[in-house]
Design a protein around this nucleic acid. Sequence first.
DNA 1: CTGCTACGTTCCCCTCGAAACCAAATCGGC
DNA 2: GCCGATTTGGTTTCGAGGGGAACGTAGCAG
Lengths: 396, 396
Amino acid sequence: MRRMTARPANAHQARLLKLLRDGGPSSRAQLGDRVDLSRSKLAVEVDRLLETGLVVADGLAASRGGRRSHNVRLAPGLRFLGVDIGATSVDVAVTNAELEVLGHLNQPMDVREGPVAVFEQVLAMAAKLRASGIAEGYDGAGIGVPGPVRFPEGVPVAPPIMPGWDGFPVREALSQELGCPVMVDNDVNLMAMGEQHAGVARSVGDFLCIKIGTGIGCGIVVGGEVHRGTTGSAGDIGHIQAVPDGRPCACGNRGCLEAHFSGAALARDALEAAQQGRSSELATRLEANGRLTAVDVAAAAAAGDPTALDLIRQGGTRTGQVIAGLVSFFNPGLVVIGGGVTGLGHTLLAAIRTQVYRQSLPLATGNLPIVLGELGPKAGVIGAARLISDHLFSPA
Amino acid sequence: MRRMTARPANAHQARLLKLLRDGGPSSRAQLGDRVDLSRSKLAVEVDRLLETGLVVADGLAASRGGRRSHNVRLAPGLRFLGVDIGATSVDVAVTNAELEVLGHLNQPMDVREGPVAVFEQVLAMAAKLRASGIAEGYDGAGIGVPGPVRFPEGVPVAPPIMPGWDGFPVREALSQELGCPVMVDNDVNLMAMGEQHAGVARSVGDFLCIKIGTGIGCGIVVGGEVHRGTTGSAGDIGHIQAVPDGRPCACGNRGCLEAHFSGAALARDALEAAQQGRSSELATRLEANGRLTAVDVAAAAAAGDPTALDLIRQGGTRTGQVIAGLVSFFNPGLVVIGGGVTGLGHTLLAAIRTQVYRQSLPLATGNLPIVLGELGPKAGVIGAARLISDHLFSPA
DNA sequence: CTGCTACGTTCCCCTCGAAACCAAATCGGC
DNA sequence: GCCGATTTGGTTTCGAGGGGAACGTAGCAG
């Protein structure tokens, strides 16, 4: 099929496209309720969108006591690619224009293999999804990388855990390969956008989204918009000091949060506990798999292993200490916990909550929900799709 | 004279008023360069503003090679009152419409005496300024209080250091007394607005403004706008844990930044040092005045007293630790240090800088100026005047 | 006096919003 | 079951408002 060529001609059309994306098929009347336009102007702009093909008629809606309305919807053939590059795995998904996930693949992969190898993988996965029949092509792609990004250019800058990517023109390269527009952002920001679009953070203006995976980061949403900071490194909380004179960290300092709690730190701690004979549960799993990850700790904790539970609680407490500071500072309306360690579930959440509620000001915590993300691994790819759709659904 | 009765009728007029406020007297052509309006529309709106009396003709400008332009300016008789209520003193200033300070008074006062007593004081100071002839009346007033504020209503909420103020209708009460519109905000936010308007933070979109006075707080500016948080307590960093299991704090926790460094903590430490005979310089000053404040420590440090220098350095290091975390999280383009302890000057600044540059990520600190505010005690009152002018120069 | 430049105003056309108007469905009464 | 009242959705008409360009005006330089 023909790929998306048109772009909204003005802010009104952009607004309408986003309403159709977020609200699904709608009548002109429904659109009119949500946008500040006269009915005549609205009709004109909808007609123009129909002409471009971005929007198509979608039949008559059921009557609600009067004349039935003619629904319109976004072109059903539009397809966005959402890519979430983690430290140790890649997620690729295809969505329609309403950002519903039509297909989703995950593959282990080491980001340190560099952009060329990773892109090969991503392109193969995108091709596989296309081959499965859910997409005839891609109208745009969003991609998240585990490090700071110079957002306007779509280029990673000084990413600690993916040194080979520094300055690599991710946006340009991927756009060339895929033949469609591409936007790049930090993976944590995309997770925040995902939970904002389709998860627990719907209708919350200011919130924090803590992603605990191999590393640890924080998406910051202010007034509905992602805050990226002056150099694109906002939310990089992994190297905030959690323990004075604590463990040495790869960054050169001591006591960084990430050195004390993260997927990587947890795996190290679990290994140590197993080898020192402090946990038979973990030792068994080590013997079975030859290595230990956060998943093993989660399983051991679920089986009631006290050492595993302790590791999780301690990590949660450390994380909670840092979050408590951020909550006092930022006064968010919601804190979302997500990322690979969500499997640790409510043990982790409870430890974090306890610490935050104890340490932050009552005024800031009084009405502050601290919850797990509800989209899991889909948050990142949905956020990525949302990123590119926000871009494409804006005036050219 | 007649007080300001008119308000801008639309967003264009609001924009023009703000341009005249920030840029001083201007010609229609100059305004046209800074606003996206046709020359015809611009002329119409300027004429309407002239009719309302908010704007007046200001003679002809010098020629720049062609026809001379007719300047316009904001009504010269407009007067704003800026009030900055600190924990231990009150600042009151009068500005013209361009927010230039025409008169400024400061008086010691304990905020814990409650709103009624403080208001009496403030009104007396406002009357004194008016009596001096610089104002015939006030067109609006901005007021800063040292605690969280429910911004839309202008009411303090659960302020720790001013318990008698909780829920007191500051905005309404003051508006009644002064007979003009009033806006209320946290004092730290106003300091940030002041430095943004007329100080070091001009033209910086994202910055932090750390105010170290009796307590310690932080104004957060995102995209040029003050971030107040969900419950108005954003920036309340005084109770972030700086020292695990550190000193007990009035808030019930231990190791809060404010318990280890602030005007109050510094005075306590200085007293202890003097009494323990660790500093003859401080002991002399204690004997002379019967008490010690941050000013004494500054003087002792200036005289080379090692204990005083040590106290400042240690405080700066503690503060720097917390700021380092905030910088990693927020990635600002500038950090401004202000408040009562600015007298400690570069000793303090150096300690803060050292700590932040050591602990934060290079990407976040690489191009990050950390500077002292340049407006001193005027920052708060200018910010207050700016707050009310922003309000009055917006469509009703 | 004659260009030249900059400033301000006038005129025309297009856009947009509000309201009247037209169309299509349900509901209720007989 | 028919018919009008009611409700909801969509279209047309009309007038105010705003942008662009042409035009008029005021100062400077030679």
